[in-house]
Design a protein around this nucleic acid. Sequence first.
RNA 1: AAACCUGUGAUGUAAUGGUUAGCAUACAAGACUUUGACUCUUGUUGUAUAGGUUCAAAUCCUAUCAGGUUUACCA
Length: 562
Amino acid sequence: MSEEKKSLNFIEQIIEEDLSNGMKKENLRFRFPPEPNGYLHIGHTKAIGISFGLGEKYNAPVNLRFDDTNPAKEEQEYVDAIKKDVSWLGYQWENECYSSDYFQQLYDWAVQLIKDGKAYVDSQTSEEMAEQKGTPTEPGVASPYRDRTVEENLELFTKMKNGEFEEGEHVLRAKIDMASPNMLLRDPLMYRILKKAHHRTGNDWVIYPMYDWTHGESDYLEQISHSLCSLEFKPHRDLYNWFRDNVFEYSKSAYPLMPKQREFSRLNLSYTIMSKRKLLKLVEEGVVSGWDDPRMPTISGLRRRGYTPASIRNFIETVGVSKRENIIDVALLEFKIREDLNKNANRVMAVLNPVKLVVTNYPEDKEEILIAENNPELDAGSREVPFSRELYIEREDFKEEANRKYFRLTLGKEVRLKNAYIIKGESCVKDDEGNITEIHCTYDPLSKSGSGTEESKRKVKGTLHWVSKKHAVAAEVRVYDRLFSDEAPDGHKDKDFMEFLNPDSLKIINAFVEPSLVSSKIGERFQFQRLGYFNVDDDSTSDKLVFNKTVGLRDTWAKVNK
RNA sequence: AAACCUGUGAUGUAAUGGUUAGCAUACAAGACUUUGACUCUUGUUGUAUAGGUUCAAAUCCUAUCAGGUUUACCA
């Protein structure tokens, strides 16, 4: 075994350092903490890949924790979808946790903080508090309620909990430092009153803990060793530590380990958006058919589009982890799915833009069964494909005449029909408007694929895919293009991302596919030879096949042609 | 403006003071080909800038410049 020294990313380096400084390997524990307020997208797979990847690397447990502290936005539907997506990616969590499971413990600790003079009830409006907050360059000023007595605070907080106040009347604040250069330390809110039913705790609570108070303490309760999140939480780290250090004093015997937060840069993908709020807008305004629309950058959208878990995981691994802002080219994602499908998808023939081809010297009634290899990359066997006198080929594969660069069918030139015969263009039939309605050709009976004859070994420059007209199966093919025409749709200050929507992001095509596909099942993936990779959509039925175009093949001819 | 973070080809990432700055994608040329795919070969562009420390700097120091984050009863 070549012990190639694998370079570590900065998070792995931190862990290695902690380990060499005495942290026990069995104390390593990670978590992925989504808020159930939307569907997971490709950006989340980075966070998932980092924490679950570390779990796999160090054989450490990883919790799936739902950060459900805002009942106004969260729903069970999202919890279910998130679980499905993480599982689909192939990760297994140790425990399914909910921040809401810790509401009582959080409350008890908050009471202790009040008793220690480290938290107080503020009774101002949010506007008043915002005014007192100061700015990055000027310190804030203390709330008039900052020095309430412990007894008063305790009484007020209890009443808040008991529902004796309305939303907005009071909040609980941590008493830290109104002059801190870190705005988050200027007496941050710990609790607010929210009279909304929670998807798990129902109406048990009318006060809900804020993110900063909840998140770190949830990490602490679960004894997470490394709490990994994206860069925008960097300023929260001081607060994370403040809460953690205080609570640790109350509970160190029960919970002896202190987690630490570290931050990495989030993933951005060109030609798409990653904000849950904006994705929700696309769904709500009907721009897409739902969270799982194949054009969406959601995991469910990619799944429906035909992406494999392996391709997404490879993508994340290749992207790496760092602390700098980045925009990753979608071409890399597309490369990863092609790489996977090239190896694993069976090849079939389908014609998306059909024109009739008549083999004039082929007997009218004759039908032949030809053998086609399923996947040259794999030992995947072969299948039978019917051939007859009348076929469909792609309209783009014929020109009456063309230059030497054009390898396809022209009048007087030979090409091979994949898995079948070599044919020669003879003539074509046009309608009144000059559109080609039928192409006539002749075939060389001795040139049959795999027959071993001299004629069959003849080199011809072009090979076309085709389907037999009589045996062809009609199918709907949904061809997708990028949802946005701009590389960074939400990166413009003066323009809304909706302005960059690509009007041609979905084309519905009535195509003909080879008969072997009638038995294909939802989710199955194929390479339509010379076209791209396609999968069977959820909408597909035995009466009406529906395919999604996952991604096209690399097409150097299209580039030359431009 | 303040504090904090970040600057390596077109994109992403590696090199942890010690070879001609590596890998992947992208792009280009060629070979192969019953997929203009795949595969293979070759090539293209890079350490933000200016100083300094050192025998030696992408790496350490200083300044400058550029970008990002923070001023929610969201997470």
